[in-house]
């Protein structure tokens, strides 16, 4: 347990700058999309989520395994909502899954390009 804590502390110290940046951007985008006229109409909450998700992907490049894990969790949530017959609530999870697949695609592409270097 304490080992994991130290591992996490080390990771946190190493990535402090990125953690601060992502929180800062989360606040900035949050403010932008909530309070700035026009932007709050043009960008819905899902778009702001996508942007933050993409920032996370850029700052802390996750493995394909992590992305697949998130994807399966997304599907689990969607399935539960479908079983409850609230399809309209389940629909955004399909859009998140699409984005996850796009991100997996980026990973695949990186891997593919690296073969030619």
């Amino acid at each position: 347990m304490s080992n994991k804590f130290f591992l996490f502390r080390n990771w946190y110290n190493e990535n402090l700058g990125k953690v601060v940046l992502i929180f800062l951007l989360a606040v900035v985008f949050g403010m932008l999309f909530i309070y700035v006229p026009f932007l709050n109409l043009i960008f819905g909450p899902l778009i702001s989520f996508f942007i933050l998700f993409f920032l996370w992907f850029v700052l802390f490049p996750p493995s394909i395994r992590t992305l697949v894990g998130i994807g399966i969790f997304t599907l689990f949530c969607a399935c539960a909502l479908s079983l409850l017959r609230v399809e309209s609530l389940a629909e955004p999870f399909g859009e998140i899954l699409y984005m996850i697949l796009v991100l997996i695609g980026f990973r695949y592409l990186q891997e593919y390009i690296s073969q030619f270097k």
Partner: peptide, 10 residues
Amino acid sequence: SRDVSYLNLF
């Protein structure tokens, strides 16, 4: 396209 959501297609 009304019900052709990404989730339904997946």
